[in-house]
Amino acid sequence: MGVLGEAWTWLTTGANWSGESGAGHRLGEHLYVSGVSLVLACAIALPVALYLGHIGKGGALAVNLSNVGRAIPVFAVLALFMVSPLRNAGYVPTIIALVLFAVPPLLTNAYVGMTEVDRSVAEAARGMGMSGGQLFVRVELPLAYPMIMTGLRSAAVQVIATATIAAMVGQGGLGRIITAGFNTYNTPQVVAGALLVAVLALAVEAVLVGLDRALSPLRRRRTA
């Protein structure tokens, strides 16, 4: 409990939160980098996955991609960017690396969600005279929605946890608190940094669960 107590002291010391390398600024950087990466990853992965799921093709690609994604060492990708001219582009290297990391799970989950839509329901919708677009918007998307949100939530948590690796190549984010503590043998600071990342991940997860509840198409249908 000693280290946790000291970490708490570190977290509640105002001086640790202020300034360029303070926890406040690092938290902002972390949120910004993770948020932008997640939005970009969604913008890339979801249309592809939903389209492939709708036409029912490209299954092998969608499934294997998630395995390829796990094989990408984020540290190596970041390092490659840092020795290229991209190193002068601010947060861009971190964001690209995180997008590469987040696309595969998003794509796979959304695709699996689309293919698990009961075929007989889709057939019935077609029999009722729905066009491809209507089928997609009014049947497939609502039924695939829970799986898409599951993918989004796990991608968000992973992106937030992985964004710390940016600190290993000198980029910003909460990882810098951990590396700074590591380099000065300040274990309470390492714990404090890890706690901040974990709390951020849990908070984002809670927000997404809330959004899920508010937006879920099936739930709305049921209450109406």
């Binding site: 948590v157 992973q158 946890a161 992985t162 710390t164 690796i165 600190a167 290993m168 990882g175 951990i178 590396t179 503590g181 590591f182 274990t187 390492v190 714990v191 940094g193 890890a194 990342v197 974990a198 991940a201």
Partner: peptide
Amino acid sequence: YTVPSLAMFSLLLP
């Protein structure tokens, strides 16, 4: 799994 790898390795150091 949600513990950042960087933090995990740092925390196991002691």
